[in-house]
């Protein structure tokens, strides 16, 4: 499958200023995002998945975090060079993001509708108020929220976790972005709700042709939704391949280890899981000063 590359991340390096000096978190991350396809960023806590997303979006906490090297090429422009205002225009319009916890991402003192309209006010000011409202309700309907007209006037705390995540998706998709970054969108949800959200996202992708960057630590979710996978460890992409190669023929020892730790439903119950130790000698990417 060959598809247009909409976003190309090359050698991204990010560091954070801490009380104990500078801590480098990304050591040259590279991957491509193809139009209409989903790339999964997989790795354990602390591997730099979320920092990668934040670096792409220009949402690193200021003034502590900054991108110090590499490029993020989106339709001919390098996002790392854009000014705050220019980035502001792209964010939410061309590139959107969904976070893990929809309760903290939604504003508790504004109605769902007001928050949806806010996105449109910012990026589609040419529309009239009525049109914006209709569009927002249409978005709620699209993410399969029952009685969208009624929900429009409700607050985040009136909704269940799955419903809130749907609202987040509606908000992120309101301007028909080219790229949607999903940072652990289903981690906090029940399995059944997770399955329905994943299905919804797949449907919306088919419909809009957007590209997705799917950040997760759950290989089951990856198997479910991704076309390509970039496995991250210690701030680097250790393996980048299409989904079938990753699952059938993993090259990197870390990928093999992750796969072996996936709970397997065919295993006999009450058996100990074999945990292979991490052998740094097998990781050619990490030599010398990276501290592993």
């Amino acid at each position: 499958m060959s598809a247009d590359i909409v976003l190309s991340v090359r050698g991204l390096e990010t560091e954070f200023q801490t009380d104990d000096g500078i801590s480098k978190v990304l050591h040259g991350v590279s991957f491509d995002v193809k139009a209409g396809q989903t790339i999964g960023l997989v790795g354990e806590s602390g591997s730099g998945k979320s920092v990668t997303a934040m670096s792409i979006m220009g949402l690193l906490p200021k003034p502590y975090g900054r991108v110090i090297g590499g490029s993020v090429n989106f339709r001919g422009t390098d996002l790392t060079n854009l000014s705050v205002n220019e980035m502001h225009e792209i964010r939410g319009d061309r590139i959107s993001v969904i976070f893990q916890d929809p309760m903290t991402a939604l504003n508790p003192v504004h109605t769902i509708g007001r928050q949806l309209v806010e996105v449109l006010k910012l990026h589609r000011p040419e529309l009239s108020k009525k049109e914006q409202q209709n569009h927002a309700i249409e978005m709620l309907r699209k993410v399969k929220i029952p009685m969208p007209e009624k929900r429009f006037a409700e607050y985040a705390h009136n909704l269940s976790g799955g419903m809130r995540q749907r609202v987040m998706i509606a908000m992120a998709l309101a301007c028909k972005p080219d790229i949607l970054i999903c940072d652990e969108p289903t981690t906090a949800l029940d399995v059944t709700v997770q399955a329905s959200i994943l299905e919804l996202m797949r449907e919306l992708q088919d419909e809009t042709g957007m590209a997705m960057i799917f950040i997760t630590h759950d290989l089951g979710v990856v198997a479910e939704i991704c076309d390509d996978v970039a496995v991250m460890y210690g701030g680097k992409v250790v393996e980048n391949a299409d989904i079938f190669s990753i699952f059938d023929n993993p090259q990197h020892p870390y990928t093999k280890r992750l796969l072996s730790l996936m709970p397997n439903m065919d295993d006999e119950p009450k058996q100990k899981i074999k945990i292979a130790p991490i052998d740094p000698a097998e990781f050619p990417e990490f030599t010398g000063d990276l501290g592993i």
Binding site: T192, L219, G220, F244
Partner: peptide, 15 residues
């Protein structure tokens, strides 16, 4: 059955 069906798959070919 519904709960079991919602468990994430272990291989993309099951999709």
């Amino acid at each position: 059955k519904r709960l079991l069906d919602a468990i994430p798959i272990t291989h993309p070919s099951q999709r």
